[in-house]
Design a protein around this nucleic acid. Structure first.
Lengths: 112, 112
DNA sequence: ATAATATGTAATCATTTGATTACGCAATTA
DNA sequence: TAATTGCGTAATCAAATGATTACATATTAT
């Protein structure tokens, strides 16, 4: 594949396959072959997606014998969230769900 | 430019120029030339970015005479936020600030 | 009517992206 | 030791992306 250029979180999560991969390994690490089996594309293609994800700090890889366990590191999503947050007044959902959560907590407190 | 293919919010905000454009017109609509003047790239290039943003519902355009006023529509960011939210337990910042906010609310309630 | 302005669009181009097949190599198993 | 397994990597390719210049068109100003 050609040389890498831009490599940031926004770019990383732009690809739907990479988002799926993150979803797969968010809760339990998997080795590369196990991940590749879940997709219709070739193992090397998955290997490259993992490489991209690890290059921007979203996947950490632990070698165990001949297997490489891939674990999602989702902290970089904070950067995306921060960027989005500055516009939160302009879109409703997140703010609504935060409000409803706050209201629930407040309600629970009043009942105490 | 080549034919359009994928066209979703994740893709739209992957480009740093498009994120800047959204930041520019989030608070006040601007016409296309005014936007283009803020960047080093050509007007047609900006025109295309605007087109992409409008195709995924992130910019609405109002024709006024020969000018086209571009206004940011940031609701689609809710989709991104929702996707991120499901992993919020895995990255600290947003969750911390939510927790501190919750704590503050709870504290206020206790004092009542 | 003519010039200037605001913009879209087409042709073109270099680069990046995402994928494939073929191959190589270290670790494991038989 | 020989076969199998789990990968990385190189060569290659089609398509997408982001940008440019040149041109067309409608609106507004002179």
């Amino acid at each position: 594949m050609a040389a890498a250029a831009r490599r940031d979180v926004f770019q990383a999560i732009a690809d739907p396959v990479r988002r799926e991969i993150l979803g797969l390994i968010a809760f339990e690490p998997m080795n590369l072959n196990a991940i590749a089996e879940k997709f219709d594309i070739s193992r090397p293609a998955i290997s490259n997606h993992i490489k991209i994800l690890s290059e921007c700090g979203m996947v950490s890889i632990t070698q165990q014998g001949r297997e490489r366990y891939c674990e999602a590191k989702l902290d970089p999503l904070g950067e995306v969230n921060q960027w989005i947050d500055q516009y939160s007044q302009f879109w409703s959902r997140r703010f609504d769900s935060l409000n409803s959560y706050i209201n629930k907590v407040q309600h629970q407190n009043k009942q105490k």
